[in-house]
Amino acid sequence: MNNLKVTIDGKSIEVPPGTTILQAARMIGENYPPAMCYYTPLKETGGKCRVCLVKVTQGSEANPRPMPKLVASCLTRVEHGMVIENETSPEVLEARKGVVEFLLINHPLDCPVCDQAGECDLQNLSYKHGTESTRYEEGRREFDKIDLGENIQLHMTRCILCYRCVYTADQLTNKRVHGVINRGDVSEISTYIQNAIDNDFSGNIIDVCPVGALTDKKYRFKQRVWFSKPFYAHRECDKCKGEAVAWVKNNDVIRVTARKNKFGEVLDFICNNCRFEHKNMNDWTIGEPYEMDNDSVITTNKYKVLDHSPAVNVDAKFVSE
């Protein structure tokens, strides 16, 4: 089949049939829509968070009518001759601002004490699309923290219900023990009866979590992420490829994560053995420094600016430390 031509924010590209708008925009490589729930390595993800909404001003060459509503770019496949507006559309930007506001109204904004601070997709998103102040005056939703076994902690209050961890468990492990219970805005990720998540690949749910809801218990509070340095690391492993990132401080491996592409998606899932049990420098062959996603607040050094935004109430003392 012939490639399809799409135009996004005035830039055109040819893509194979089946490509989604988001993928096409990522191929163009600039100002692609954000994605909080869609995750390329996981089947069935996407469509839930709605931050990736874009406007289709021309459906296709054959049927040029615009689409009546904004569409989720992560799931909508391109047609030949499709014309899309992302950041050039005020309607899209306004809608995205709305979605970010919705995601934040029940988010605890406890960034100063959150392990994910500095590598949090929601933080990055609200920096780029959020508003100055919150209009939300009602009480926030709260949940107790729970331990999912000895390695992983769930801080449900921070969860944005992207369902990524559920798909991870479904697709990487043979016996899913956690899922989404309850419904509406009291839905929560849980095992329901405090089952430990115990499976060789369960640790990956930490890496796919876009916020700080699932964290590595063995790493928690050891260091803020930006005080350690990430390196490509490798070890021989019979369960996974053993290709990981070692976060190093003072010649100590303080945590191990999977390698991700520039869209924050895991390249190769790693096993729990590599992730949780190998914290010595000589467990690993340490390689080059690991490059960070160029959109992150860490790499763009915008963290301080963010502190002054009341919508994301980051305590300044962590930055000046």
């Binding site: 016996k175 899913r176 023990v177 899922g179 989404v180 419904r183 095992t191």
Partner: peptide, 12 residues
């Protein structure tokens, strides 16, 4: 099916 599949549904 897995027990979690039942809990997910019963609580919905």
């Amino acid at each position: 099916i897995q027990p979690i599949e039942v809990y997910e549904v019963a609580t919905f």
